[in-house]
């Protein structure tokens, strides 16, 4: 048996095949991108254990994830915040964990996307299950999983074909995602998947891909998904979620924590729909009244209220930088944050 020959043939063809595969996808405008997965999130969550009163945590859903740019925030305040926001998720499970399982007494900026924040307390519902599974993973992750992630980062940073995101984006190019794209007949209703329109760094500084701004057909694929989500989402459950959030907020504030709520911009059908389903007076104003916490609503500021989200829900990188810089200035002016550079 000439196994050496077989090994040489296998390695040669295998490596040539991978180079061809990588080149093909790069020719289709794909670029290496990190997966914003549970391990990346857990690495940020681990930073809280050593955080001081000067540190700032960002919690919430995808809007604060996209709209607060860490570099700009750091440039204004002298502090690089820890990004713990999770796309498509209620912030309540993460906030609850931080309040009850850590002694953190610094600043938490909690992004309020009303339809998610006040969506549900039901553990199996997606807005709850997604963040809770990340919290659970933080506590349960094994040393092997940590090492796997460390080893995978240089590969994800350099190879396009390493794109199997746990979010199951329809434009991922791992084998399972490619097979998922094949549809024959109409035996079951068509499932609508989201395309990946974000770029992420190791500390989860997240920004919108430029083609979301420049390529209208790509933007349409994102808004199609939002339309689908609006159609299938159950109505929010305001009273119990408000009570849950207010209780945790009071606990955090009472122990000396600095809590700031933030409402990031939305546009188009999202803006109208949100205002209709959860009017500002009954949710946002009520939240601030019950918690006595400081809050920033984009509609209250001239420089923000006309910002346009290309796909209705998140700011482009350029606008996100502007939003972050201006917001940080306002917060410092209000003494909600201190500028560590000057202090």
């Amino acid at each position: 048996m000439k196994l050496k020959t077989s090994l040489i043939v296998a390695l040669s063809i295998g490596i040539i095949g991978l180079i061809a595969w990588e080149s093909y996808w790069r020719s289709q405008d794909y670029e290496p991108n990190l997966n914003d997965d549970k391990e990346l999130w857990a690495n940020q969550r681990a930073k809280v254990n050593n955080a001081s009163e000067q540190d700032i945590l960002l919690l919430g859903s995808s809007r604060i994830l996209f709209d607060i740019q860490l570099n700009e925030f750091e440039a204004e305040t002298g502090i690089r915040p820890v990004q713990l926001a999770i796309a498509g998720a209620s912030p309540l499970p993460v906030f609850h964990d931080l309040v009850h399982n850590t002694g953190f007494k610094g600043t938490i900026i909690l992004g309020v996307t009303t339809v998610l924040t006040f969506s549900t307390l039901y553990p199996k519902a997606m807005p709850w299950d997604r963040p809770q599974s990340k919290v659970d993973h933080f506590y349960n992750r094994t040393y092997a999983q940590r090492l796997n992630h460390k080893l995978s980062l240089p590969l994800q940073n350099n190879f396009v074909f390493m794109s199997a995101d746990e979010e199951l984006y329809i434009d991922d190019i791992d084998l399972k995602s490619l097979l998922r794209r094949i549809e024959i007949g109409e035996r079951v209703p068509e499932t609508v998947y989201l395309v990946n329109f974000q770029n992420t760094t190791e500390d989860r500084n997240t920004s919108m891909l430029n083609k979301t701004v420049t390529d209208s057909s790509f933007t349409r694929r994102v808004t199609n998904f939002w339309e689908f989500v609006m159609k299938v989402s159950p109505p929010p459950d305001v009273a119990p979620t408000m009570e849950y959030l207010v209780n945790d907020a009071k606990d955090f504030i009472n122990r000396g924590g600095n809590l700031v709520f933030l409402r990031c911009p939305s546009s188009g059908p999202f803006r109208g729909g949100e205002a209709q389903i959860l009017p500002r007076e009954t949710v946002w104003d009520e939240l601030l009244r019950q918690t006595n916490a400081k809050g920033y609503h984009y509609e209250d500021y001239d420089q923000f209220k006309n910002l346009v989200c290309p796909e209705w829900s998140h700011l482009s990188l350029k606008d996100a930088k502007f939003f972050t810089t201006e917001l940080a200035k306002i917060m410092i002016e209000d003494n909600v944050l201190t500028n560590q550079k000057t202090n």
């Binding site: 077989s6 043939v9 296998a10 040669s12 063809i13 095949g17 595969w21 399972k176």
Partner: peptide, 18 residues
């Protein structure tokens, strides 16, 4: 050995892209 090598390469390639 060539056929075995090609089959091996295909498996290796598919594992990597999966």
């Amino acid at each position: 050995p060539w056929v075995l090598g090609i089959v091996w390469a295909i498996m290796f390639f598919i594992i990597c892209i999966a």
